[in-house]
Each structure stands twice: as C-alpha cells, then as structure tokens.
C-alpha cells in the first residue's frame, strides 16, 4: 500500500492541482471533452432511436450496431480518427468518444419507445393524434426514464473512456497517469500514477451518482419500481 500513500501525498500537494497542466487544468479539459462527446452522442443517438422506436423497426440493426461497437477498441478509433480529415486536436477525440456514447443512447431510446403499451398508442391515435403529436405528447413523456438511463450509461462511459485520450496526447485526466509513467516508477512516478487513477475513478463514480439522482428525479413516482434501473448495461471502457 506504499504506492497508495505516495498517491495521497501527491494529491495533497496544492501545486500538483494548480500547476499549468496540473490536475485542475486536466479536469476541466476532461469534462469539456466528455460534455461535447455526450452532446454529440445525444444529437445522433436520440433522434435516431426515437424515430426507429416510433416506426417500430430496426431493432435488430440497433442491437447489431451496439454489439459491434463493443468489439472495436477505443484506442483504435482514437488513433485512426486524427489521421482522417478531422485532423489532430480535440475534434477526433470528441468524435471517437461520441461513437461509444451512441449505442446506449440509441438502444435505450428505442427500448423506451417500444416498451410503451400498444393500447396507449392506439388510444392516442383514436383520439386523433397525428404521428408527430403521438411522439411529442405520448411516447416521449412515457420513455423519459429510459432516455435518462441511456444518458447516465453513456455519460459514465464517456467520462471513463476520455481517460484513454492521453494515449494520443488528447488531453484529459489520463495525461496525469501517462505523465506519471513518463517520470518512471524509480523516480517517484508511482504516486502520480496512483493519484491519477484515484481521481479518474472518483470522477466516474461521481458522474454515475449524480446522473442516478437525475434519473430518479425525472422518473415519475409511479414508474420508479418494477423496472431495472439500467436496461442496457454499459460496456467497460475499452
């Protein structure tokens, strides 16, 4: 547990937080990258999932796509995208992370719309609602818990995978860890590695806890029980 002690010593040094490229800078970078990635993922995953769920088609394709992304290493996308016209810097990192945010958002949106009782849909149609009205007034409100669950899964996964951006100098908290390896174990890098690991892990757990609270808030009381909190499990960040 010697390294854990060194890690806490490292964390207790204020300079390690306020230095340029220190923990605070990296944290801000990490959150910014994650935010854009999740927003991009939402912009793609939600409309597509809602549309497919509304039409009631493409379920097989959604599952296949989600399973396929499970097999693609994050590292591969992180290294390939900068070599495409996207160029270097933050955009390829954001796109790479967004690719892994889409499956949980898409799958949960689809499931959320499909799990609605068909009788409810029939009743809404019988009342004369058009397709668009049906989506806005009936289907979307009823699938809010699923959309929230998807957002939570995707956000936690993005925050976790954003650490891998350090492999391609993409910034974020992973830089603290890789810089620790750069210093080397014999020169006291171990403390910094462990400190980076602790902060990244805590950040992921914090995001998970906050979004679990959000998910609970937006779920109507009547829907809170008898439903798994996570219809689609997250994949470990690879």
């Amino acid at each position: 547990m010697n390294y854990f002690h060194e890690g806490f010593v490292w964390l207790n040094d204020p300079l390690n937080w306020t230095n340029p490229g220190g923990m605070l800078d990296r944290l801000q970078e990490h959150l910014l990258i994650s935010l854009w990635a999740v927003l991009l993922g939402c912009a793609i995953g939600w409309p597509l999932g809602i549309w497919l769920g509304h039409r009631g088609r493409g379920g097989g394709a959604v599952i296949t796509f989600a399973n396929l992304t499970l097999a693609v290493p994050t590292l591969a996308l992180l290294t390939i995208l900068p070599l495409t016209p996207l160029g270097f810097g933050k955009p390829p990192v954001v796109v790479a992370l967004a690719v892994f945010a889409v499956p949980p958002l898409l799958a949960n949106a689809y499931t959320g719309l499909r799990q609605i009782d068909p009788e409810t849909r029939d009743a809404a149609r019988g009342m004369g609602l058009s397709g668009g009205q049906l989506v806005r007034r009936v289907e979307l409100p009823l699938s809010v818990p699923y959309l929230a669950a998807g957002l939570r899964t995707a956000a936690v996964q993005v925050v976790a995978t954003a650490a891998l951006a350090a492999f391609v100098n993409g910034g974020g908290l992973g830089e603290i860890i890789s810089a620790g390896f750069g210093i080397g174990m014999s020169n006291g890098g171990g403390g910094q590695i462990v400190a980076g690991g602790i902060v990244v892990a805590l950040l992921a757990l914090l995001v998970e806890a906050v979004l679990a609270g959000v998910q609970r808030l937006v779920t109507p009381a009547a829907l809170r029980t008898g439903r798994p909190s996570r219809p689609t499990a997250a994949a470990p960040a690879g």
């Binding site: 690991g197 990244v200 992921a204 690879g238």
Partner: peptide, 21 residues
C-alpha cells in the same frame, strides 16, 4: 456495479504500481 464504473485506465493505474509495471 461500482467496480464496473471505475475506468479501465484508472484500474490499471491503481493495480500496476503495486503488482509490477
């Protein structure tokens, strides 16, 4: 669930110094 949430890179960074880098 808690272990699953911990990012792989963080887990590796916590395990590696203790086990061998």
């Amino acid at each position: 669930g808690i272990l699953y949430t911990i990012p792989s890179l963080a887990l590796l960074a916590l395990v590696a110094p203790a086990v061998g880098t």
